[in-house]
C-alpha cells in the first residue's frame, strides 16, 4: 500500500518520485507501453504537419481501394482517400475521446468514492447503491442506448467544444458510465485513510471536511487513481471503437472505430482490402495494449502484493 505520507518536503518528494520511476521503468511492459504511447501522442498532436489536412471524398487523390504503394503507404479507401491520412487524424480523435472520457470517469469516480468513504452512513449506502448499478451494467450497454437518445434530443447539427455532437455525447456518456470501479477502489482506500492520525489532526486543527478531503486524502489516493486510470483509458478506447463501429461515430471526424465501420460498409473484408481495415485495427490494438501494460506496471509498482519469491 502507499506510504502514509502527510506532506512531502521538496527533497523527500523528489526522492520518492525517483524511486517510483526507477521501479516503474524497470518493467519491460511499462517501457514498451510508454514508447508506443509517446509515438501515438506525438502523431495525434500534429496530424496536419505529418499528413496534411483530413482528406474527404472530394479532395481524395488516390484510386479506389488501392493496396499500399510508394505514394499511399497504407493504401486507399473506397473513395480514394489515403488511409495513412485517415489513421493519423483518427489518432487525434480516438485518443482525445478516450482521454477526456477517462478524465470524467476519474473525477466522478473519485468524488463519489471519496464522499461515500469519508462521510459513511446513509451517504455511503446510497452512493454505493448507485455505484453498484454502474458496476454491474457495462459502460458499452448503457452508452449503446443513451447515446442515440441524447443525440435525438440534442439534435445532430452544431459542434460542441470543437467536437461533432455524437463524439461529444459518446465521450461524456462513456465517462459517466465507467467510473464505478474507480469509485469502489477510492472508497475502500478512503475508509482506511480517514482513520489515520493526520486526518484527526487536521480535523482538530479546524479544517473543513472539504479541505481535509482535497488536501489530505486526495493526494494519498493518487497511486490508486493512476493505476486504474490507465485501465479506464483502455476500456474507453474499447467502448468508443465498438460504438463507432456500430455507426454511432461521426464520418466528419472519423475515429479509428468509425474508419473500421466505413471499411465494413465498403466491404473491405470481402474485397480483401486488408490495409484499409488493418491500419486502424492495429492502432487500436497498440494503444490499448500500451495502456493495459502501463496500468499493470503501475499496479505492480504501487501494490507489490506478489511475494519476493519469483
Amino acid at each position: 500500500m502507499s506510504k502514509s505520507t502527510i506532506r512531502y518536503s521538496g527533497r523527500t518528494r523528489a526522492r520518492a518520485i525517483k524511486t517510483f520511476l526507477g521501479q516503474f521503468l524497470g518493467y519491460g511492459g511499462a517501457q514498451l507501453g510508454l514508447l508506443c504511447l509517446v509515438f501515438f501522442l506525438v502523431t495525434a498532436a500534429m496530424p496536419n504537419i505529418l499528413v496534411g489536412p483530413l482528406q474527404t471524398a472530394i479532395n481524395a487523390t488516390g484510386d479506389f481501394l488501392a493496396p499500399p504503394s510508394g505514394q499511399h503507404l497504407l493504401g486507399t479507401d473506397e473513395v480514394g482517400r489515403d488511409v495513412l491520412n485517415l489513421v493519423v487524424h483518427g489518432a487525434r480523435i480516438s485518443l482525445t475521446i478516450a482521454l477526456l472520457a477517462t478524465v470524467i470517469s476519474l473525477v466522478v469516480g473519485t468524488t463519489v468514492g471519496m464522499t461515500a468513504g469519508y462521510f459513511g452512513r446513509w451517504v455511503d449506502v446510497w452512493l454505493m447503491r448507485l455505484t453498484d448499478f454502474f458496476f454491474v451494467m457495462p459502460s458499452f450497454v448503457l452508452a449503446l442506448v443513451i447515446t442515440p437518445v441524447v443525440l435525438e434530443v440534442m439534435g445532430r447539427g452544431r459542434e460542441i467544444l470543437g467536437f461533432r455532437p455524437s463524439l461529444f455525447v459518446i465521450l461524456v456518456v462513456i465517462g459517466m458510465t465507467s467510473w464505478a470501479f474507480v469509485a469502489r477502489v477510492v472508497r475502500s482506500q478512503t475508509l482506511s485513510l480517514k482513520e489515520r492520525t493526520f486526518v484527526d489532526r487536521a480535523r482538530v486543527a479546524g479544517s473543513s471536511n472539504f479541505s481535509i478531503m482535497v488536501r489530505h486524502i486526495l493526494p494519498n489516493l493518487v497511486p490508486q487513481i493512476a493505476a486504474n486510470g490507465a485501465l479506464v483509458v483502455a476500456g474507453a478506447i474499447y467502448v468508443e471503437t465498438s460504438l463507432s463501429f456500430l455507426g454511432l461515430g461521426d464520418p466528419l471526424q472519423p475515429s479509428w472505430g468509425t474508419l473500421l465501420s466505413l471499411a465494413q460498409r465498403a466491404g473491405a473484408a470481402s474485397a480483401g482490402a486488408w490495409w484499409y481495415l488493418g491500419a486502424p485495427g492495429v492502432c487500436v490494438l497498440t494503444v490499448s495494449l500500451s495502456f493495459v501494460l502501463i496500468g499493470n506496471a503501475l499496479d505492480d509498482t504501487f501494490n507489490p502484493r506478489r511475494r519476493v519469491i519469483p
Binding site: F245, A268, L277, S288
Partner: peptide
C-alpha cells in the same frame, strides 16, 4: 492474451474474414 484483451473482437472477425474467407 494481453494482445487479445486489447483487441476489439469485431476487428478479429474482420481479419478472419480477410484470411479464411476472402483469401
Amino acid at each position: 492474451s494481453l494482445a487479445l484483451y486489447s483487441t476489439p473482437s469485431f476487428w478479429l472477425g474482420m481479419l478472419l474474414v480477410v484470411i479464411f474467407s476472402t483469401a
